[in-house]
Protein backbone atom coordinates (compact mmCIF):
# COMPACT_ATOMS: atom_id res chain seq x y z
CA UNK A 1 0.00 0.00 0.00
CA UNK A 2 2.78 2.36 0.96
CA UNK A 3 4.73 1.31 -2.10
CA UNK A 4 1.77 2.25 -4.20
CA UNK A 5 1.65 5.68 -2.57
CA UNK A 6 5.35 6.11 -3.20
CA UNK A 7 4.87 5.23 -6.83
CA UNK A 8 2.06 7.71 -7.13
CA UNK A 9 4.17 10.38 -5.46
CA UNK A 10 7.09 9.70 -7.76
CA UNK A 11 4.84 9.83 -10.78
CA UNK A 12 3.48 13.20 -9.67
CA UNK A 13 6.98 14.48 -9.05
CA UNK A 14 8.11 13.46 -12.51
CA UNK A 15 5.06 14.90 -14.19
CA UNK A 16 5.28 18.13 -12.21
CA UNK A 17 5.48 21.23 -14.40
CA UNK A 18 8.55 22.30 -12.43
CA UNK A 19 10.72 20.20 -14.76
CA UNK A 20 9.48 22.20 -17.70
CA UNK A 21 10.72 25.31 -15.95
CA UNK A 22 13.99 23.67 -15.00
CA UNK A 23 14.60 22.63 -18.59
CA UNK A 24 13.84 26.10 -19.85
CA UNK A 25 16.17 27.67 -17.32
CA UNK A 26 18.94 25.24 -18.18
CA UNK A 27 18.61 26.05 -21.85
CA UNK A 28 18.76 29.74 -21.01
CA UNK A 29 21.91 29.29 -18.95
CA UNK A 30 23.70 27.23 -21.54
CA UNK A 31 22.86 29.69 -24.27
CA UNK A 32 23.69 32.75 -22.18
CA UNK A 33 26.90 34.68 -22.72
CA UNK A 34 27.26 35.09 -19.01
CA UNK A 35 27.61 31.43 -18.21
CA UNK A 36 29.95 30.85 -21.11
CA UNK A 37 32.18 33.73 -20.07
CA UNK A 38 32.28 32.52 -16.46
CA UNK A 39 33.00 29.00 -17.67
CA UNK A 40 35.78 30.29 -19.91
CA UNK A 41 37.42 32.22 -17.07
CA UNK A 42 37.33 29.31 -14.67
CA UNK A 43 38.43 26.78 -17.27
CA UNK A 44 41.39 28.88 -18.40
CA UNK A 45 42.65 29.80 -14.95
CA UNK A 46 42.29 26.25 -13.71
CA UNK A 47 44.05 24.74 -16.68
CA UNK A 48 46.77 27.36 -16.37
CA UNK A 49 47.37 26.54 -12.74
CA UNK A 50 47.31 22.83 -13.52
CA UNK A 51 49.96 23.31 -16.17
CA UNK A 52 52.22 25.05 -13.68
CA UNK A 53 51.57 22.36 -11.12
CA UNK A 54 52.25 19.58 -13.60
CA UNK A 55 55.51 21.08 -14.76
CA UNK A 56 56.67 21.19 -11.14
CA UNK A 57 55.32 17.80 -10.21
CA UNK A 58 57.63 16.07 -12.68
CA UNK A 59 60.65 17.15 -10.68
CA UNK A 60 58.96 16.36 -7.42
CA UNK A 61 57.78 12.95 -8.52
CA UNK A 62 61.08 11.83 -9.99
CA UNK A 63 62.51 11.09 -6.56
CA UNK A 64 59.62 9.03 -5.21
CA UNK A 65 59.15 5.30 -5.39
CA UNK A 66 55.74 4.87 -3.84
CA UNK A 67 53.22 7.03 -5.57
CA UNK A 68 50.42 5.99 -3.26
CA UNK A 69 51.99 7.62 -0.26
CA UNK A 70 52.44 10.86 -2.11
CA UNK A 71 48.98 11.43 -3.43
CA UNK A 72 50.26 12.83 -6.67
CA UNK A 73 46.84 13.78 -7.94
CA UNK A 74 45.95 15.65 -4.81
CA UNK A 75 49.30 17.34 -4.92
CA UNK A 76 48.61 18.37 -8.47
CA UNK A 77 45.61 20.33 -7.23
CA UNK A 78 47.40 21.99 -4.34
CA UNK A 79 50.92 22.87 -5.47
CA UNK A 80 52.33 25.52 -7.70
CA UNK A 81 55.85 26.19 -8.98
CA UNK A 82 58.56 27.68 -6.76
CA UNK A 83 58.28 31.11 -8.26
CA UNK A 84 54.58 31.17 -7.53
CA UNK A 85 53.61 32.47 -10.97
CA UNK A 86 50.09 31.14 -10.64
CA UNK A 87 47.97 30.14 -7.67
CA UNK A 88 47.17 26.46 -7.25
CA UNK A 89 43.96 24.98 -8.58
CA UNK A 90 42.19 24.98 -5.22
CA UNK A 91 42.79 28.67 -4.67
CA UNK A 92 41.26 29.49 -8.00
CA UNK A 93 38.28 27.29 -7.37
CA UNK A 94 37.56 28.72 -3.95
CA UNK A 95 38.02 32.23 -5.29
CA UNK A 96 36.08 31.95 -8.55
CA UNK A 97 33.47 29.40 -7.46
CA UNK A 98 31.40 31.94 -5.53
CA UNK A 99 31.55 34.23 -8.53
CA UNK A 100 30.01 31.47 -10.63
CA UNK A 101 27.25 31.01 -8.07
CA UNK A 102 26.52 34.74 -7.86
CA UNK A 103 26.68 35.11 -11.62
CA UNK A 104 24.11 32.38 -12.16
CA UNK A 105 21.60 33.68 -9.66
CA UNK A 106 21.76 37.42 -9.28
CA UNK A 107 19.04 38.22 -11.81
CA UNK A 108 16.92 35.10 -11.40
CA UNK A 109 13.73 36.80 -10.24
CA UNK A 110 14.20 40.51 -10.81
CA UNK A 111 14.89 39.99 -14.49
CA UNK A 112 11.56 38.20 -14.85
CA UNK A 113 9.89 40.92 -12.87
CA UNK A 114 11.34 43.73 -14.95
CA UNK A 115 10.42 42.03 -18.20
CA UNK A 116 6.89 41.38 -16.95
CA UNK A 117 7.19 37.66 -17.42
CA UNK A 118 6.87 36.93 -13.72
CA UNK A 119 3.21 37.89 -13.57
CA UNK A 120 2.51 35.65 -16.55
CA UNK A 121 4.39 32.83 -14.87
CA UNK A 122 2.56 33.13 -11.56
CA UNK A 123 -0.80 33.11 -13.31
CA UNK A 124 -0.07 29.62 -14.60
CA UNK A 125 -1.26 26.69 -12.52
CA UNK A 126 2.05 26.05 -10.75
CA UNK A 127 2.84 26.61 -7.10
CA UNK A 128 4.69 29.84 -6.70
CA UNK A 129 7.62 28.31 -4.87
CA UNK A 130 8.37 26.02 -7.78
CA UNK A 131 9.51 29.08 -9.70
CA UNK A 132 12.45 29.75 -7.39
CA UNK A 133 13.03 26.06 -6.85
CA UNK A 134 13.28 25.61 -10.61
CA UNK A 135 15.71 28.50 -10.90
CA UNK A 136 17.84 27.02 -8.15
CA UNK A 137 17.77 23.46 -9.49
CA UNK A 138 18.55 24.53 -13.03
CA UNK A 139 21.55 26.61 -12.04
CA UNK A 140 22.70 23.90 -9.64
CA UNK A 141 22.59 21.18 -12.26
CA UNK A 142 24.47 23.33 -14.75
CA UNK A 143 27.10 24.12 -12.13
CA UNK A 144 27.38 20.46 -11.12
CA UNK A 145 27.87 19.36 -14.69
CA UNK A 146 30.51 22.00 -15.20
CA UNK A 147 32.38 21.23 -11.98
CA UNK A 148 32.32 17.51 -12.64
CA UNK A 149 33.55 17.86 -16.16
CA UNK A 150 36.30 20.16 -14.92
CA UNK A 151 37.29 17.65 -12.26
CA UNK A 152 37.32 14.69 -14.61
CA UNK A 153 39.25 16.75 -17.12
CA UNK A 154 41.84 17.40 -14.45
CA UNK A 155 42.18 13.68 -13.73
CA UNK A 156 42.43 12.96 -17.45
CA UNK A 157 45.14 15.57 -17.90
CA UNK A 158 46.99 14.12 -14.96
CA UNK A 159 46.97 10.67 -16.52
CA UNK A 160 48.28 12.03 -19.81
CA UNK A 161 51.01 14.11 -18.23
CA UNK A 162 52.16 11.81 -15.45
CA UNK A 163 51.39 8.43 -16.92
CA UNK A 164 50.32 7.12 -13.51
CA UNK A 165 46.65 6.38 -12.92
CA UNK A 166 45.17 7.81 -9.73
CA UNK A 167 44.60 5.41 -6.87
CA UNK A 168 41.02 4.70 -5.98
CA UNK A 169 41.42 6.66 -2.77
CA UNK A 170 42.67 9.70 -4.68
CA UNK A 171 39.86 9.39 -7.14
CA UNK A 172 37.28 9.24 -4.37
CA UNK A 173 38.86 12.19 -2.62
CA UNK A 174 38.71 14.25 -5.78
CA UNK A 175 35.08 13.27 -6.34
CA UNK A 176 34.20 14.27 -2.77
CA UNK A 177 36.11 17.49 -3.26
CA UNK A 178 34.03 18.22 -6.37
CA UNK A 179 30.82 17.56 -4.43
CA UNK A 180 32.01 19.96 -1.75
CA UNK A 181 32.70 22.61 -4.38
CA UNK A 182 29.13 22.20 -5.60
CA UNK A 183 27.76 22.50 -2.06
CA UNK A 184 29.87 25.61 -1.55
CA UNK A 185 28.80 27.22 -4.82
CA UNK A 186 25.17 26.39 -4.13
CA UNK A 187 25.39 28.46 -0.96
CA UNK A 188 26.41 31.46 -3.04
CA UNK A 189 23.76 30.62 -5.58
CA UNK A 190 20.96 30.65 -3.04
CA UNK A 191 22.33 33.84 -1.53
CA UNK A 192 22.27 35.55 -4.90
CA UNK A 193 18.75 34.24 -5.61
CA UNK A 194 17.71 35.80 -2.31
CA UNK A 195 19.22 39.09 -3.45
CA UNK A 196 17.50 38.80 -6.81
CA UNK A 197 14.17 38.56 -5.03
CA UNK A 198 14.90 41.32 -2.58
CA UNK A 199 16.38 43.86 -5.00
CA UNK A 200 14.44 44.96 -8.03
CA UNK A 201 17.47 46.05 -9.99
CA UNK A 202 19.72 43.31 -11.29
CA UNK A 203 22.75 45.58 -10.88
CA UNK A 204 22.02 46.17 -7.21
CA UNK A 205 21.58 42.51 -6.57
CA UNK A 206 24.81 41.63 -8.40
CA UNK A 207 26.63 44.27 -6.43
CA UNK A 208 25.21 43.00 -3.15
CA UNK A 209 26.39 39.49 -4.01
CA UNK A 210 29.84 40.73 -4.97
CA UNK A 211 30.03 42.75 -1.77
CA UNK A 212 29.34 39.65 0.30
CA UNK A 213 31.90 37.72 -1.71
CA UNK A 214 34.59 40.36 -1.25
CA UNK A 215 33.70 40.77 2.39
CA UNK A 216 34.16 37.10 3.16
CA UNK A 217 37.18 36.53 0.98
CA UNK A 218 39.16 39.62 1.98
CA UNK A 219 37.80 41.78 4.76
CA UNK A 220 36.43 39.19 7.12
CA UNK A 221 39.88 37.87 8.05
CA UNK A 222 41.09 41.39 8.73
CA UNK A 223 38.11 42.19 10.91
CA UNK A 224 38.41 38.97 12.89
CA UNK A 225 42.11 39.65 13.42
CA UNK A 226 41.29 43.10 14.69
CA UNK A 227 38.68 41.79 17.10
CA UNK A 228 40.90 39.04 18.43
CA UNK A 229 43.85 41.39 18.88
CA UNK A 230 41.72 43.96 20.59
CA UNK A 231 40.39 41.40 23.04
CA UNK A 232 43.99 40.53 23.96
CA UNK A 233 45.64 43.80 24.89
CA UNK A 234 48.93 42.58 26.30
CA UNK A 235 50.42 40.49 23.56
CA UNK A 236 54.00 40.42 24.74
CA UNK A 237 53.54 38.48 27.93
CA UNK A 238 50.96 35.92 27.05
CA UNK A 239 50.85 32.57 28.71
CA UNK A 240 50.56 29.53 26.48
CA UNK A 241 46.97 29.05 27.59
CA UNK A 242 45.93 32.53 26.70
CA UNK A 243 47.68 32.21 23.37
CA UNK A 244 45.75 29.07 22.72
CA UNK A 245 42.55 30.73 23.82
CA UNK A 246 43.32 33.51 21.44
CA UNK A 247 43.78 31.11 18.61
CA UNK A 248 40.54 29.33 19.48
CA UNK A 249 38.68 32.61 19.49
CA UNK A 250 40.13 33.39 16.08
CA UNK A 251 39.09 30.02 14.66
CA UNK A 252 35.58 30.16 16.03
CA UNK A 253 35.05 33.61 14.60
CA UNK A 254 36.50 32.57 11.28
CA UNK A 255 34.20 29.58 11.13
CA UNK A 256 31.27 31.93 10.72
CA UNK A 257 32.57 32.56 7.24
CA UNK A 258 31.64 30.01 4.59
CA UNK A 259 34.93 30.73 2.84
CA UNK A 260 36.91 29.63 5.83
CA UNK A 261 34.79 26.50 6.25
CA UNK A 262 35.41 25.64 2.65
CA UNK A 263 39.15 26.19 2.98
CA UNK A 264 39.17 23.78 5.92
CA UNK A 265 37.26 21.23 3.88
CA UNK A 266 39.70 21.59 1.01
CA UNK A 267 42.67 21.26 3.30
CA UNK A 268 41.47 18.08 4.97
CA UNK A 269 40.21 16.40 1.82
CA UNK A 270 43.19 17.12 -0.37
CA UNK A 271 45.98 16.87 2.19
CA UNK A 272 45.48 13.51 3.87
CA UNK A 273 48.65 13.90 5.92
CA UNK A 274 47.35 17.12 7.42
CA UNK A 275 45.38 16.31 10.52
CA UNK A 276 44.14 18.61 13.17
CA UNK A 277 41.89 21.55 12.57
CA UNK A 278 42.56 24.34 14.95
CA UNK A 279 45.24 24.58 17.62
CA UNK A 280 46.67 21.60 19.44
CA UNK A 281 48.78 21.52 22.52
CA UNK A 282 52.15 19.93 22.96
CA UNK A 283 50.65 17.10 25.04
CA UNK A 284 48.52 16.09 22.11
CA UNK A 285 51.49 15.95 19.78
CA UNK A 286 53.58 13.68 22.01
CA UNK A 287 53.63 10.17 20.69
CA UNK A 288 51.99 11.18 17.47
CA UNK A 289 52.99 9.21 14.39
CA UNK A 290 52.35 11.07 11.17
CA UNK A 291 50.34 8.79 8.89
CA UNK A 292 47.88 9.87 6.24
CA UNK A 293 44.22 9.72 7.22
CA UNK A 294 41.76 7.37 5.61
CA UNK A 295 39.06 9.01 3.53
CA UNK A 296 36.35 8.12 6.04
CA UNK A 297 38.34 9.81 8.78
CA UNK A 298 38.86 12.92 6.70
CA UNK A 299 35.15 13.02 6.04
CA UNK A 300 34.41 12.71 9.73
CA UNK A 301 36.66 15.67 10.45
CA UNK A 302 35.07 17.94 7.89
CA UNK A 303 31.50 16.85 8.54
CA UNK A 304 30.63 19.86 10.76
CA UNK A 305 32.03 22.23 8.16
CA UNK A 306 29.99 20.62 5.39
CA UNK A 307 26.84 20.82 7.46
CA UNK A 308 27.67 24.45 8.24
CA UNK A 309 27.87 25.43 4.59
CA UNK A 310 24.79 23.40 3.74
CA UNK A 311 22.88 25.05 6.58
CA UNK A 312 23.91 28.51 5.44
CA UNK A 313 22.68 27.66 1.94
CA UNK A 314 19.40 26.28 3.26
CA UNK A 315 18.86 29.35 5.42
CA UNK A 316 19.38 31.62 2.41
CA UNK A 317 17.00 29.56 0.34
CA UNK A 318 14.39 29.51 3.08
CA UNK A 319 14.64 33.28 3.40
CA UNK A 320 14.32 33.62 -0.36
CA UNK A 321 11.25 31.40 -0.23
CA UNK A 322 9.68 33.44 2.56
CA UNK A 323 10.32 36.77 0.91
CA UNK A 324 9.08 35.52 -2.44
CA UNK A 325 5.87 34.04 -1.07
CA UNK A 326 5.00 37.23 0.75
CA UNK A 327 5.91 39.55 -2.06
CA UNK A 328 3.17 41.08 -4.14
CA UNK A 329 3.60 40.36 -7.80
CA UNK A 330 2.38 43.48 -9.53
CA UNK A 331 2.58 44.19 -13.18
Amino acid sequence: MDLHKLEKGLENAIKSPIWTLVRKEMTDHIKSFRFNILMGIILLTCLGSLYTALSTIRDAASGIDDAEQWFLYLKMLTITDEKGTLYPFITFISFLGPLLGIGMGFDAINNERNKNTLIRLVSQPIPRDSIILAKFLAALSIISMFIFSLGLLVIGLGIIFMGIPPTFDEFLRIIFYLIMIIVYISFWLSLSILFSIRFNQAATSALAGMAMWLFFSIFYTIIVNLIVNASMPDQLFQTIESQQKNQELFTSFMRLSPNYLFSEITMVLLTPSFQPLGPISMEQVIGYVPTPLALSQSLTIIWPQVIGILAAGVVCFALAYLVFMRQEVRS
Binding site: K31, K115, N116, I119, R120, S123, S331
Partner: peptide, 9 residues
Protein backbone atom coordinates in the same frame (compact mmCIF):
# COMPACT_ATOMS: atom_id res chain seq x y z
CA UNK B 1 -1.68 41.43 -17.70
CA UNK B 2 -1.63 45.02 -18.89
CA UNK B 3 1.96 44.94 -20.03
CA UNK B 4 2.56 41.36 -21.00
CA UNK B 5 6.15 40.19 -21.25
CA UNK B 6 7.62 37.20 -23.04
CA UNK B 7 10.97 35.49 -22.91
CA UNK B 8 12.72 37.58 -25.48
CA UNK B 9 15.22 35.08 -26.74
Amino acid sequence: PDDVGFYED
